[in-house]
Write a protein that binds this DNA or RNA. Structure first.
Lengths: 130, 130, 130, 130
DNA sequence: GTGGTCTAGACCACC
DNA sequence: GTGGTCTAGACCACG
């Protein structure tokens, strides 16, 4: 579990951590039962505040993604892979819906949106960064 | 210029005002040179504080969308339509790009994205709501 | 006396009127004893508010540049030419001093200022506008 | 970063703060990445309201001079030195141009302007005050 | 602790 | 009447 944080991109750091944990679970980098780095470890590795990591872990636990092992740390729950896979689709669907809503309000046609999607997708896959 | 404010949707009030002004300019409801409601008027109409409206107007002025005529009020600048039309496209393009980036990270194919776009677009246009 | 007003350049309209009256007196377009247009006339001609012209006239009278003729209007005072000629120099001297002060604070050398003066002067005299 | 505010000199307080921050960046007193005093600190030090400092910081951020790091504070952006140095030159150039324009309108020769510059510069450097 | 938003109410210059 | 500035004090999200 390596975490890449970009402070100053508008997305709260605790949320960036949450996403990356979920992403790792969804794609199988983190397996059910596997232990996560301690809040202190991850805080040092990602150069963020301990409280921030703790908040991310806490919210993941509330969502049923992580189990807290008494006095030992957090581990990936049995339900996590399902949750995370559903989650990533839902998140994308929601954000997409909100963008489309705005496009609709601005009288942009579905054709224009489609071509925007294609052109942006190309520019993203060509540089292949992130 | 009627302004509908939804306090509590997370978007700052002054930004909601900015968007609605820009939107009205982009679609021709507000013409170049036309006067906007005074800060006091709009504050009453939208049930928000005068300073909040003033901030929205000030930022629009800084962006070159509004001219402030001393003692007279605010009016739509000559460059406003261009700025606003570019603005709305750019905003949508940026948000779309960010969604696509996330889709890419989650190994979702462009076909899946396309079908998501189409299905969400349909559901939005059918209910036709705001 | 034709007055050209540029609302929206930051300089108060009443002050623009004052300057143009003084300028006309200093260069002899307005002679001692000559009557000025009525506030209403000038307001119409310059497309500004009557109160604004009235304020300009009032301040010019307070400065001794204009005499108010009972119920008839304003006329150029005997002392006006002297006042206006001194005034224009003083005004320029003051503004120049303030610019130089800022240049000094920003550690700009007198040589740089001199070359700025020359280059700006050239660009102003070439187009010869204003 | 010590801020000296002169309330009542006509220049808005938030603008005085902006200028002093930019000035400090331009002359190297504030380095790229360096943290600025918190809005509350600076408000106390300069004896002004927190909101006033916040406005200055916000506008500097909008200009790309400051980065706002969530929950951490404001810091000097990478582009700041360039922006600030260009800024100070442009501001002086603009004001100088406006003075020269007025001089031109008043039929003052470039020689007179030059000698004014020199004499005023001398009087400013001799007293060497702020 | 940090900045960000909002309200309420005051005072100002300008038209 | 108009916008512009400032203060005071509250609440919020983030670290």
């Amino acid at each position: 579990m390596i975490c890449h944080i970009d402070a100053g991109n508008g997305i709260p750091i605790y949320e960036q951590i949450e996403r990356q944990v979920k992403f790792s679970i969804a794609n199988g980098s983190l397996l059910v039962g596997e232990r996560l780095p301690s809040v202190r470890e991850l805080a040092v590795q990602a150069a963020v505040n301990v409280n921030t990591v703790a908040r991310a872990y806490r919210e993941l636990q509330q969502q049923g993604v992580l189990d807290s092992i008494r006095g030992t740390g957090m581990s990936v729950s049995a339900a996590a892979p399902d949750i995370c896979r559903q989650d990533r689709l839902q998140m994308i669907r929601d954000r997409l819906r909100s963008v489309l809503q705005e496009a609709l309000q601005n009288q942009i046609s579905v054709q224009e949106v489609r071509s925007l999607v294609d052109s942006e997708w190309q520019s993203l896959t060509q540089q292949d960064s992130g």
